[in-house]
Computed example of a mutant assay.
Amino acid sequence: MRDDYRTISGTEKAALLLMTLGEAHSAALFSLMDDDEIREISQTMAQLGTVSSDLIERLLVEFADQVSSTGTMVGNYDNTERLLLKVMDKERVDNIMEEIRGPAGRTMWEKLANVNESVLANYLKNEYPQTVAVILSKIRPEHASRVLGLLPEPFAMEVIMRMLRMESVQKDVLDDVERTLRNEFMSNLARTARRDSHEMMADIFNFLDRTVESRFMSSLEERNRDSAEKIKALMFTFEDLGKLDPGGVQTLLSSAEKDKLAIALKGASDTLRELFFSNMSERAAKIMNEDMQAMGPVRLKDVDEAQMYMVTMAKDLADKGEIVLADSKGDDELVY
Rank of each mutant, 00 (worst) to 15 (best):
D3G: 12
D3Q: 14
R6S: 03
R6T: 15
I8E: 03
S9C: 05
A14H: 09
L16A: 12
L17E: 03
T20D: 10
T20G: 03
G22T: 15
G22N: 11
A24K: 08
A24P: 11
H25C: 10
H25T: 04
F30A: 14
F30R: 13
F30H: 15
M33E: 04
R39K: 14
R39L: 15
E40G: 08
Q43R: 14
T44D: 06
Q47V: 11
Q47C: 12
G49H: 11
T50E: 10
T50W: 10
S53C: 06
R58H: 03
L59T: 07
L60M: 12
V67Q: 10
S68C: 08
S68P: 02
G71R: 03
G75N: 10
D78S: 13
T80L: 07
L83I: 03
R92I: 08
R92M: 15
V93F: 01
I96W: 01
M97P: 00
E98F: 04
I100T: 01
R101F: 04
G105Y: 09
G105P: 04
G105W: 03
M108A: 04
E110L: 06
N114A: 15
N116Y: 13
S118F: 15
V119M: 08
V119P: 01
Y123G: 01
K125G: 06
N126Q: 12
E127I: 07
Q130F: 06
Q130I: 13
A133I: 10
V134D: 04
E142I: 09
G149I: 01
A156D: 01
A156N: 04
A156E: 06
M157F: 05
E158P: 00
M163H: 09
L164Q: 15
S168D: 09
V169R: 04
V169H: 03
D172L: 05
D172Q: 12
V173C: 06
R179T: 15
L181K: 08
L181F: 13
F185V: 07
S187A: 12
R191K: 04
T192M: 04
T192H: 09
T192N: 05
A193P: 12
D203P: 11
F207Q: 12
T211W: 15
E213P: 08
F216A: 08
S219F: 05
S219Y: 00
D226S: 07
D226T: 03
K232W: 06
A233I: 02
F236L: 00
T237D: 02
D240S: 12
L244Y: 04
D245H: 00
L252Y: 05
L252Q: 07
L252P: 02
L253G: 02
S254C: 10
S255E: 09
E257V: 08
D259M: 06
G267H: 07
G267F: 08
S269R: 08
L275F: 07
N279E: 13
R283W: 03
R283H: 11
A284Q: 15
A284I: 11
A284T: 09
A284C: 15
M288N: 01
M288W: 02
D291V: 00
M295P: 09
P297F: 01
P297H: 07
R299K: 15
R299I: 06
D304W: 04
M308W: 08
M310V: 02
T312R: 15
T312A: 15
A314H: 01
D319H: 13
D319W: 09
E322W: 12
V324A: 14
L325C: 07
A326E: 11
D327R: 13
D332C: 12
L334S: 15
V335W: 12
